[in-house]
C-alpha cells in the first residue's frame, strides 16, 4: 500500500516468500522470524555492524528502479 502511493518501501523479513505473497515489491531476506534485524548470537558490536549492513541493503533496494517485485539477492 505504501508503494501504491509512490513511496518505495523495502521489506526486511525472514519469510521472503510470505512477503512476496503479501504483495511487497522490494524484499530483503533478513535475520530470523523473531528478530528480522537482530542476531543475538553475535556480540553487541558485531550485531550492530551486521544490522547496519542489512539496513544498507534495504536502502539500496529503495534506490533501485524495478519493473516488478524482487527478492533481492543476499549480496
Amino acid at each position: 500500500m505504501i508503494e501504491k502511493h509512490g513511496i518505495p518501501a523495502a521489506h526486511l523479513a525472514a519469510m521472503t516468500s510470505m512477503a512476496k505473497i503479501a504483495g511487497s515489491n522490494r524484499i530483503i531476506s533478513s535475520g530470523l522470524i523473531p528478530h528480522p534485524v537482530g542476531d543475538p548470537t553475535r556480540s553487541p558490536e558485531e550485531e550492530f555492524k551486521w544490522r547496519k549492513g542489512q539496513v544498507r541493503k534495504a536502502l539500496n533496494a529503495v534506490a533501485t528502479p524495478l519493473q516488478e517485485a524482487l527478492i533481492f539477492p543476499d549480496w
Binding site: 500500500m1 505504501i2 501504491k4 502511493h5 509512490g6 513511496i7 518505495p8 518501501a9 523495502a10 521489506h11 526486511l12 523479513a13 525472514a14 519469510m15 510470505m18 512477503a19 503479501a22 511487497s24 533478513s30 522470524i33 523473531p34 528478530h35 528480522p36 534485524v37 539496513v55 534495504a58 536502502l59 529503495v62 534506490a63
Partner: peptide, 26 residues
C-alpha cells in the same frame, strides 16, 4: 484491514514528506 491500515500509514508518510520506508516483519 491490512490494506486499510497500509493506506492510512501511506497517507501519513506522504503528508510528513517521507521519501522511502523500511518495513520489518516477523
Amino acid at each position: 484491514h491490512a490494506e486499510r491500515m497500509g493506506e492510512e500509514i501511506a497517507k501519513a508518510l506522504i503528508s510528513d514528506g517521507v521519501h522511502a520506508v523500511l518495513v520489518t516483519s516477523t
